[in-house]
Structures are given as structure tokens and as C-alpha cells.
Design a protein around this nucleic acid. Structure first.
Length: 418
RNA sequence: GUGGGCGUAGCUCAAUCGGUUAGAGCGCCGGGUUGUGGUCCCGGAGGUUGGGGGUUCGAGUCCCCUCGCUCACCCCA
């Protein structure tokens, strides 16, 4: 019994929850197309360096959460823990034949080895978009707008957008220096964890939520005060662009994010419907230096990753109506050998007419077939017995209330699509 | 990865102080003559009490290990 359970931190998705997942996936494809994004796929695994070099050696993702293995040729490979670096790699490999800027999206799985809990799986699904090849603030605005629209359309109302700019390689070092100088005399007031690491990764201290770190950094320097003219102007344009799009946000100078490749704009959508530890349903930002780290031409970019599993949890929590039944429209019931042959013909016709339909694969009693019709969720059952066969008709039964109508055999498809 | 809580049919739960063959509801499958599902009646399948070890005459119940879920931390989707 336990041996048929899926591996730890993974899950089987079966009806009816697979319907909800599919609805979200469909909606992702739809909104991506609506905004002009093109579908991309990259391999499930990459050379390990792709993540080591881009995410930053000190990040948790790289140091302890990657599924890394050696293949039979001795290469070190890693199941992708995030999708931005692979997409940028693929872009660099193919860019001569792609439009500029290139707007990409994907719906796929990522893998991270952490201790699983609700909203944090080892294998999880993301819907991400990336705009490559432009540093225009309009790209940042568009990316955030798509996420906002998508999340709200899926029924997430208790949603906060946290927004920040963490500068670039020109202005961030000055800030970092001042922050270190600020923390130095206060290091004893930090929590145990950051007392060790504050010097190596001072920005992370700002992100820490413990009361100790919060009070110690109350008056810490703020990155927004350090932005140089270019970054400051860029961030101003992003903010006014969001205002223009009607996307509400909260400035959060503590938002630094966990991957090293981010520059300038960073953002997170946090759901109030999820437990705070896993409440980030979408996170992203700008990564103008990423392509160079991969050894490619300088290529600015901005994008997000949006967790579909968390989205579904939050939507369920907020009582969002799960949309679109995947049930067939008609369940065909055949009684007896002759009528069953005719039922199979009808089934073929319905499917040829693009009407989703189903029937029992075995010869079963009427009651059993009707029960199957009921469980299939189909709104109608088409009944074919000797009586209908003789008269060249089909009895159409509305399963909700048992209302029946006799329809000429040749008009069933039309009757169902009216 | 660190710390806490919890594991009894598919689901929700019961089982006296450690006592003999672990029950119920729902769900699932079948039947109530080849003419009506969802309601009703009848029947059935389904459990090594997560797994392993120990204590005991006897363990679902007590102890240890392990696996899983869960919450917090860490981090993030």
C-alpha cells in the first residue's frame, strides 16, 4: 500500500483535481497569447553550471536544493530548480532567428529538494514569462501586469504586490558597503543565523522576518536611496507604468529575493489566503546581467515564475469557483446487440461532429449504463434500444431532471449542439 | 537541512484500564429479469491498524527505529 504512493514531495494529479489544474494551464496559455508571448520548452535537466553560475554559489537553491546527478558520460546534470536561466540559455543558442525583443512563456515543472509541506513540493509546476533583449521599463510593467491579471482572473483577491528596485552593479556595491557598515556595530542584535552570515550576504538580513533582525535593521540604509540616476529613472517609469495599468503595489525596500542574478526591479505577489511561510505565489524581476554570466551577448531581461500549485491552493482557500467541467456532453447507452452496434455508430458520428461523447466499453445492464452516464457528468444520455432501432429514433434523456425527448436518429448531433 | 504535532478501509471517524474475530457512515462494485441513473431495498469487495523491531500470557493502544503527512524555521514557486 505504501509502495504505490508517489515519491516524497511529489503528487499524482487525478480527476477531479486534474480538471482544475488543466483549467489553470489552459488559462496560462490563453493569457500568454493575449499579450503576445510565444511558447518555449527547454530540457528538464541542464548542465549543472547553468544554475551554479547564474543563481549564485551562496544561494540556498544552489547550495542545498538541487537535484544533481552524473550521467553515464560523467557529466554533472541538474533537474532545473528554476526556469529563467534555461530560457536565457536557449535564447542565446537560438537568438539569430528570433525577434527582438523576444517574449517567451512556459508552463512546466521545476524540482527543488527541500522538506515538503503544504504549498512546497519537490516537484512543482510554474507558469513563467520572460521578455529578453530590452531594458525598457515597459517590459517590467507588462510582465507584472500579466501576472496580476492572471492571478486575479483565477479568483485570488487577497493579493499584495510587493515591489522594489535593488539597483545594478553600479549602485548596489555602494549600498552594500554602507549596509555592512551599518550592521557591524549591531551584529549582536541579529538573530543567531544572521550573526554568522550578515557579512557574506548583508542584503538577506533585510529580508529576515525575525523580531531581532527587524528591530536591528529598523533604521538601516535603504536601497532606494542609493539608486543611481539611470536606475532611479527606470524604477520611476516602472511605478508610473503600473499606475497607468491600474496595478496596485506596495514599495518594500526589504524585498531582495534569493537568486543572485536579479537587478533593478524585483517583485512578489503574496496571497493572504496561504500560510505566510509559503504565501509567495509569484516572484520575479529584472536580470540584466544573466546572459553575460552564461557567456552570451549582453542581453537584458525581465520575467517571473508563478507557482501553479500554490495558485490552486490559494484559489481553493478563497472559494474561487473551479471552472469548466471536462465532462462529455453525451453518454450513449445501447441495449442489446443490435442497438449497441447502432450506439457505436452514433458515438462515432458525435465525435466526428466534435461533440465529446462516451459509452460503456462493455455490454452492461441499462441501470449500470445509466449509472455510468450519471457519474460521467454528461448532461445528456442518448438511449438506443430495440424500440428506438425500429422507429429510427433516439431517446435523449436530460440527466439533471429525467426529462426525455424522442429525436430522429439523424438529428442527434444537431440536437446536442443547438 | 533543523525543531514540534499527527498516522486505524478510498474519505471522515469509533474501538473501556493493554483483552479474544478492529466497527460505522459516506464512497466504490453488484443485484432488485433487455426500458430508466441520481432516491429506496438487498448483497459484496476493501485493513498485515504506514512499515520494522521490542516489552507483555496478550499490543490499534506502551517503548525504540523508520517512512509519510503536517506546522514552524530556512528558503522560495
Amino acid at each position: 500500500m505504501t509502495d504505490v504512493a508517489p515519491p516524497r514531495g511529489t503528487q499524482d494529479v487525478l480527476p477531479p483535481s486534474s480538471d482544475a489544474l488543466l483549467a489553470v494551464v489552459d488559462a496560462a496559455h490563453e493569457i500568454a497569447r493575449l499579450y503576445g508571448y510565444r511558447y518555449v520548452e527547454t530540457p528538464a535537466f541542464e548542465r549543472t553550471e547553468v544554475f551554479e553560475r547564474t543563481s549564485g554559489g551562496s544561494s540556498d537553491v544552489v547550495t542545498k536544493e538541487m537535484y544533481t546527478f552524473e550521467d553515464k558520460g560523467g557529466r554533472s546534470l541538474t533537474l532545473k530548480p528554476e526556469s529563467t536561466a534555461p530560457v536565457v540559455r536557449a535564447y542565446l543558442a537560438t537568438r539569430q532567428s528570433l525577434p527582438l525583443p523576444f517574449k517567451a512563456y512556459y508552463v512546466e515543472k521545476n524540482w527543488r529538494h527541500g522538506r515538503p509541506q503544504a504549498g512546497r513540493l519537490r516537484e512543482f509546476r510554474v507558469f513563467g514569462i520572460e521578455v529578453l533583449g530590452t531594458d525598457a521599463p515597459g517590459a517590467d510593467v507588462e510582465v507584472i501586469t500579466v501576472a496580476n491579471r492572471f492571478l486575479r482572473a483565477r479568483g485570488l483577491a487577497r493579493l499584495t504586490l510587493h515591489l522594489n528596485s535593488i539597483g545594478d552593479e553600479v549602485c548596489r556595491p555602494r549600498f552594500r558597503e554602507d549596509l555592512v557598515a551599518f550592521l557591524e556595530p549591531r551584529q549582536d542584535r541579529l538573530d543567531r543565523e544572521h550573526r554568522e552570515t550578515w557579512r557574506r550576504n548583508p542584503l538577506r538580513v533585510l529580508d529576515c522576518t525575525t523580531p531581532e533582525c527587524r528591530s536591528a535593521t529598523e533604521d538601516a540604509p535603504r536601497i532606494l536611496d542609493y539608486l543611481d540616476d539611470a536606475c532611479s529613472e527606470h524604477f520611476g517609469a516602472v511605478r508610473s507604468g503600473l499606475d497607468e495599468e491600474g496595478v496596485a503595489f506596495e514599495l518594500d525596500h526589504r524585498l531582495v529575493r534569493g537568486l543572485d542574478y536579479y537587478t533593478r526591479t524585483t517583485f512578489e505577489f503574496v496571497s493572504g489566503a496561504l500560510s505566510p511561510a509559503q504565501a509567495t505565489v509569484c516572484g520575479g524581476g529584472r536580470y540584466d546581467g544573466l546572459a553575460e554570466v552564461l557567456g552570451g551577448e549582453p542581453t537584458p531581461g525581465v520575467g517571473y515564475g508563478l507557482g501553479l500549485d500554490r495558485l490552486l491552493l490559494a484559489a481553493a482557500e478563497e472559494g474561487a469557483a473551479s471552472s469548466g467541467s471536462r465532462a462529455v456532453r453525451c453518454y450513449v447507452v445501447g441495449l442489446g446487440e443490435d442497438a449497441r452496434r447502432e450506439a457505436r455508430a452514433l458515438l462515432r458520428e458525435l465525435r466526428d461532429a466534435a461533440i465529446p461523447a462516451d459509452a460503456s466499453l462493455e455490454d452492461r445492464p441499462l441501470k449500470a449504463q445509466l449509472r455510468m452516464a450519471d457519474r460521467s457528468g454528461a448532461p445528456f444520455a442518448a438511449l438506443l434500444g430495440d424500440r428506438e432501432l425500429r422507429e429510427g429514433v433516439v431517446t435523449m434523456r436530460r440527466l439533471a431532471d429525467g426529462e426525455q425527448e424522442t429525436v430522429p436518429r439523424g438529428e442527434v448531433a444537431d440536437w446536442l449542439s443547438r
